[in-house]
Design a protein around this nucleic acid. Structure first.
Lengths: 252, 252
DNA sequence: CCTGTTCTTGCACGTTTATGCATGTATTGT
DNA sequence: ACAATACATGCATAAACGTGCAAGAACAGG
């Protein structure tokens, strides 16, 4: 890899993602962090980027506000989202829950992927409007403003009329014994309804959810095909969940 | 997540929401409150925000870019939206169409107005999430990405189960003889279905729509209670529409 | 083909910076 | 006045940084 190539690569990353993390790029390109730092220093000297602790930012912060929105989601959720997006097969149908992690999944879906996305979140629907090849189906109903999803009888009924290969569900608590839980009864019912319409259900479980439980049970472990998390494979909760016979996909 | 990114994020929140709560941001980004406090302290030291107990406020309180968003919508649409929003009675129910003008109406609704909003646009629904007293009902169905609304049989069927006092409809053409028109047959059908569920239907007709016609008829003039426009009261189309017995609300 | 120079790269070292936790203090609301 | 919450401070740890140095590659000139 040529040095000039690296610089171009850095500038492209900067434009596309709105930021560059020295460590990540180094690992990605298989070169030392020192070289990346040197490149960034040079670019900054030429006024092509703004050097910050840990990496660099574009000179004009308003470069890509789509990208900016991406970057404000915590690292863990983004990793989980990336793995989850990989589960969606071209031509397949996926039921996508609401919540910030699910929104990250929507953003992580390849822009030209042709698939069917079924969701009960207007936010998710709005995020997928610029995916030209994605068929989008919105489940209507009363909107719960707190979590920005439709719930209630009408929404559950609407869900009965769809089916999919895959359901990606967000929850607030993932506990080996208690199971999967969330903070609202209506939401829990809706999540159950969604899960029942898909062949496989995977849980979006960024590490802060592991080992915690909320008030309302969503699903028992038997109904879950797998869990996607950014926690280490040796995390105690991960190992307990594996012992229950549930597949665990770790995103490191 | 880079430290500099966090600071940018804080400033953006400050601009968009007019305030920052340390605890919330910490939970949101998955970092400790200490870091958030330190960032806020630094920003305050640079004069970029005003530190207060529990979080921070913008330096000049009136900067929250609610105004900024309003200004990107053309002047005419904003005026129309403002008048339309005035038609919504406290406690009343309104069916709100999709489109940019309808989105402006959503933004123009008083934040503390308690009313029921029924819409088939995920974008509109997302825009109204921060109206705590507004009951929100979303009509599901296949999403037409071009105009960001749900359409088709499922959406029309969902519309049959609601009713409202008022329907605010956006169209692409307003012509005295041809009537109200739009560019897509499915959309036209959906708009008809919406209109049929409300006691009164008003058309959002910013001046560039007047005198033009598109491919598909939405409604004949008899089904329309009124037209809201920013055009002058002596605009020829306005006078012709008035002659048809349709009320015209002019927003100057 | 050989040699000396320059440039790049990765490594080692010490330094600086950021972060989370613990402790004690201030502020707010009831 | 009291409890709850927010805050500042100090500290330990880990990460990022800069610098100097040596090994190697690219290149020019003899």
């Amino acid at each position: 890899m040529l040095a000039a190539e690296r610089r171009d690569h850095l500038l492209e990353l900067l434009a596309r993602q709105g930021k560059v993390v020295a460590k990540d790029v180094a690992a990605d390109l298989g070169i030392s962090e020192d070289s990346v730092r040197r490149d960034l220093r040079d670019l900054a000297a030429e006024g092509l980027c703004q050097r910050v602790y840990g990496g660099a930012l574009p000179v004009s912060p308003a470069v890509a506000d789509y990208a900016a929105r991406q970057t404000v989601t915590p690292d863990g959720k983004r990793k989980v989202a990336s793995v989850a997006a990989g589960l969606v097969r071209p031509g397949g149908a996926v039921i996508l829950d609401g919540g910030t992690t699910a929104l990250a999944v929507a953003h992580a879906l390849p822009k030209e992927l042709s698939c069917t996305v079924i969701t009960h979140s207007p936010t998710i629907a709005a995020a997928l409007l610029d995916h030209p090849r994605a068929e989008l189906f919105l489940l209507g109903g009363r909107v719960f403003k707190h979590s920005a999803v439709t719930c209630g009888a009408a929404a559950v009924e609407a869900a009965q009329n769809v089916s999919a290969d895959l359901c990606l569900l967000g929850v607030t608590g993932v506990h080996p014994e208690v199971g999967l839980t969330t903070g609202d009864a209506e939401e829990a019912a809706m999540k159950r309804a969604l899960s029942a319409r898909a062949a496989d259900t995977y849980i979006l479980a960024s590490s802060e959810k592991l080992g915690t439980a909320s008030r309302f049970r969503v699903l028992p472990w038997e109904k879950v095909s797998g869990v996607i998390t950014d926690a280490d494979a040796h995390h105690p909760v991960v190992e307990q969940v594996k012992a229950l016979g549930v597949e665990v996909l770790t995103a490191s």
